[in-house]
Structure formats: C-alpha cells, structure tokens
Amino acid sequence: MFEQLIQSIFQADFLFIIIRITAPILFAALAAVISEKAGVANIGLEGMMMITALFGFLFAYWTQSWIIGVLGAMFVGILLGLMMGFFSFKLKTDIILSGIAVNMLGAGGTIFLLNMFTGLRGNTGALVSPNILIPTIDIPLIDKIPILGEILSGHAILTYLAFIFVFLMRIFLYRTPLGLKIRAVGENPNAASSVGVSVIKMKYIAIAMSGALAGLGGAFMSMYYSQGWNQGMVAGRGFIALAAQAMGRGEPVGAMFSSLLFGLAQAMKTKVSGLRGMASYNYLIEMIPYVVTIVGLVFYAMSIKRKARKHQLRPIK
C-alpha cells in the first residue's frame, strides 16, 4: 500500500496537482496578508470566497465570458470588504464579528441567491459550458521540457496569476508609498496618524484589496477547480488561508510556502483516498489537510513563543 502511495507521489502529475490545489489557498492567504498588514483581521475570507465563487460563476454565465466572471467576482469581493470595513471602522462593531457575519452570509445566503437568480438548488451543474470556465495555457518552450513541463505548463491562467501576485504583493508592500503607509498603520496607528496618514483610509484600502483577492480565489474555485458552483465547495480554504498567513509570518513569500504545504496536504488526501482498500477510512482521510493545518499552527506557535518578557507586567494570576 505504501509502495503504491510512494509511487503515485513521485510523479509529475502529483506536483501539478499540488500547484493547482494551492492556487485558491494562495489567493486567500494573500488576502489575509494584506488586511493583516493594515491591522485588520479578515476572518470573513471563507464567506467572501463562497459568495464571490457564486457571483463569479453567475456573471460568467450571464455574459458567457470568463473574464467578466473573474472581474465580477473581484468586484463583489471588494464590496464585501468595504461592507466589513464600514461595519467595523465606521459603526465600530468588532471586526471579528463582521467577519463571522460574512461567513454566515456565505454559508446560508448563497443557496438563497442561487435559487433566486437561477431557480436552481444546491449547484450550478446544469449551467456549465466550456466558455465560462477559466482557460488553461501551455507555456511555450517550458512545455517541451520533460517532467518540468508536465508540472509547470498547462495550468489555468489564474494559477499563474496567484504565484505572480506573491511577488507583486511584496513589491506593493515594500516598494510603494501606499504599502509603506499600510504597514505603518497596522503596526503603530498613532505614529501613522501623527504624520497625517489617515488610518481609516488605509484600512479601507487594505480590506478592499483583501476582498478582491478573495474574489480571485472564489472565481478560481467555481470557474475552474470545481467547474461550477456548489455548496460546501470552499471547504474551509478561507480558514486554512488564515493559518497560512500566520505561519508565513504575515509575509507574501512565507504565505506562499505555507500555502504550498497545505496544498500538499490536500493533494495527499486525494491520493490516499484513491488507494485500494482505503474507502472505509474515508472520513479519516478527509481530515488530513485540517490536521496538517493544526499541527502547522502548533509548530508555528512554538517557534515564535518568546521567553516571557521580564519588563512587561506579569499577568495577574
């Protein structure tokens, strides 16, 4: 059995799958990175992905254009981000609560919206057609290289975009005045406002960008990965992304590596459940990605656990 597993792992298609599975997690992880940099905990990523996945698909179906679908998903993501911002920055609700609200909206509201717009229940299988799915591309030259070509070429456009965004995000945060202001606001809002940087404005910008990235992740799910929208499709990726953000120490590149780790765990799950004789362990196997997430977070927490600082007031016992 293990031989089987090892054989199937040391194959080019396994690495291809990892990259494919990682992409939506990576979008969401970058969404978590940008909002966290501004000091905003966007716990609503899961719900944002569910809602944008639905709207991305619907926009694409109505216009029969995948590009409009993707842009529509980003637009809805931005609206959701601004809505969370409005509740938290303007009306002063706790950002965690407005995040939870968005998650509940994603869980319940999407089914209702789907039914309202299409009359369908549960999933959009009936509406899928090739031209509303995100196309894949073969990369010239690389696709000719054995093994490497198999791994890197033939992915969806959005998959490449996810990895390109890692470096764009890094440049944005560290090389532009806006990125500098966002980081300053997240770390010491008093310092930022003392030199005239608007704390609220930076937070709105960050959570809107976060929403747009979650929209890309959502569109990827419904318009490529699952080839249609169904309930429960996001399956905790929004939360896994929050873990990836934390494990990546809030940095884009770090978040990419931890997203890849979670992608690996998901791919393993697929592989293991495909093995002969594993059917009865189905539910156990389903747990793999989530267990990896928890174990990863524990190791992360242990690695950054600093010695209790002497100069802080001791906790009251």
Binding site: A184, E187, N188, G196, V197
Partner: peptide
C-alpha cells in the same frame, strides 16, 4: 512615548506620509 513604527527603517519612518 515615541511615535515610531518599529519594523520600518529609520529613513522610512522619517519620510512616512511624505515619501
């Protein structure tokens, strides 16, 4: 109590908001 952002460099702190 200093109004500085610890993770930024000295130069970044100085030009913050007017980079």
């Amino acid at each position: 109590h200093f109004m500085l952002v610890p993770s930024l460099t000295v130069a970044e702190n100085i030009v913050l908001g007017m980079a």
